[in-house]
Design a protein around this nucleic acid. Structure first.
Lengths: 247, 247
DNA sequence: GCCACCCCTGACACTCAGTGCAGATGTATG
DNA sequence: CATACATCTGCACTGAGTGTCAGGGGTGGC
């Protein structure tokens, strides 16, 4: 089972040779100054073969994002009802980080390229967008039915992606020094606290309250009580006790 | 002062003619089936003139985003210290919506195009990304110095854009029926409540609380109380009264 | 009225990304 | 050895985008 079988993930060496040749040229003379002909000449293959493995010149810069996206989608699809959804999408984001952290030097080189080539930046945006849509689709399924469910799903997905990217980029900017995982954990932790499990809200004392607060979160043994400022104290106490289940 | 002066915004009619010709062809035979030569032939101008007014074929689909982005940036730059930052970026997002709402039919047509043409979707993403970066840059300046300031800025900017897009897209999907402004107001209101002014948190009764919650918000006459589950009622009441300023 | 000047426009030629097609090569199976 | 199949290569073609230059229609000075 060395290289045969029907496994579609069996990497042909040509693909890797093209990636290597491409990056070598991109780094020494820039992305836009390198033509596809240059790449295939260095790799010693025909021009047509390049487009067999990469649908466009940009794709060679992100050789394994397609697989990573598929992995993430599978991860979300395999989620059961026992998983807390916000935590789950944060874990999915951590998976993506793992792909970057696998080979830091490659990720840093690519980061520098995408920073200075507008076309690559646009391409990366479309990749990130697909990740974000996958997260949002998962959350939409979870929040389906509840008011503003799709809105909430979209916002949380965007926040998770933004937090992930914030930590990832600062790690990449530091040339891959430090612990990327810890940075992303911290960033995602903030988002999780902000959006995590729909508040164990104690209810709203004093009549009709404001629109529901997404952010009113619960962190283990902490209870959040939302109330109108002019509510009488006895009503607040009653709501408080009700929230604890002793009412 | 009909058409002379040094005003750079004096629109040449040729630009509008190109947009009109382009959309006419895009709608009747599709974006990818229309070449730039087709457009200039219909508009009766030379091919080179197209690229004088639009740097790429995609740009003709978003003829006024550049101006809108400049307007939004100016709006943020003109913000003083008296503006609450999250509200300010939400208002900036409302400005963008205004541009879409100006001519609904055009916006709906463009939406249908971008939905089904991957290249246009990617282009729109890069446009949206620039809006998001402008919002984030403004917030970063505001949160500069405080812990996780850039993270918070990035997350809020992403959330605002996601909420805006959620409402905008559902409006566009309904062919421009209904009140777009109200929908965006509602969506942005949710984000504002979630991230707005750092909670008038009543304090944390019963010892050290959880990590700070971004989301613990305040909405006018509403007070949020965070407390440990095992705090005695008398302590909760004391914190509550202290928060109201009567303690 | 005439000329110099300048900006806008159009036409041609060119590079390069991406695609379709036909043929060459290599390999496993009968 | 012959056949079927997959992979690779070369070639020709479309279309986007750019550099360059010549012509044309205004404007200001003489």
């Amino acid at each position: 089972m060395s290289s045969s079988s029907a496994v579609p993930a069996a990497k042909p060496p040509m693909r890797d040779a093209l990636v290597a040749a491409a990056f070598r040229l991109f780094l020494e003379r820039g992305y836009e100054q390198t033509t596809v002909d240059d790449i295939v000449a260095l790799a010693g293959v025909g021009r047509r073969s390049f487009f067999r493995y990469f649908p466009s010149k940009e794709d060679v810069v992100f050789p394994d994002h397609e697989r990573c996206l598929a992995d993430m989608t599978a991860f979300l699809a395999a989620s059961g009802a026992e998983h807390e959804p916000v935590r789950r999408v944060c874990d999915a984001a951590r998976m993506v980080l793992g792909m970057y952290a696998e080979n830091p030097t490659f990720s840093v080189q690519r980061y520098r390229l995408t920073r200075q080539v507008p076309g690559l930046r646009a391409y990366e945006l479309s990749v990130v967008w697909r990740y974000e849509r996958a997260l949002a689709a998962y959350l939409r399924g979870w929040f389906a039915g509840q008011p503003d469910g799709t809105l909430r799903a979209d916002v949380i997905a965007a926040a998770v992606v933004a937090a992930h990217n914030n930590a990832l980029r600062s790690w990449l900017r530091s040339d891959g020094a430090g612990d990327a995982g810890a940075a992303v954990d911290h960033a995602l932790g903030c988002v999780q606290r902000a959006f995590g499990r729909p508040a164990e809200v104690a209810g709203r004392a004093g009549g009709s309250g404001p629109a529901p607060l997404w952010g009113a979160g619960r962190a283990d043994d902490v209870v959040v009580l939302v109330s109108r400022r002019d509510a009488p104290v006895w009503q607040v106490v009653r709501e408080w006790e009700a929230a604890l289940g002793r009412g």
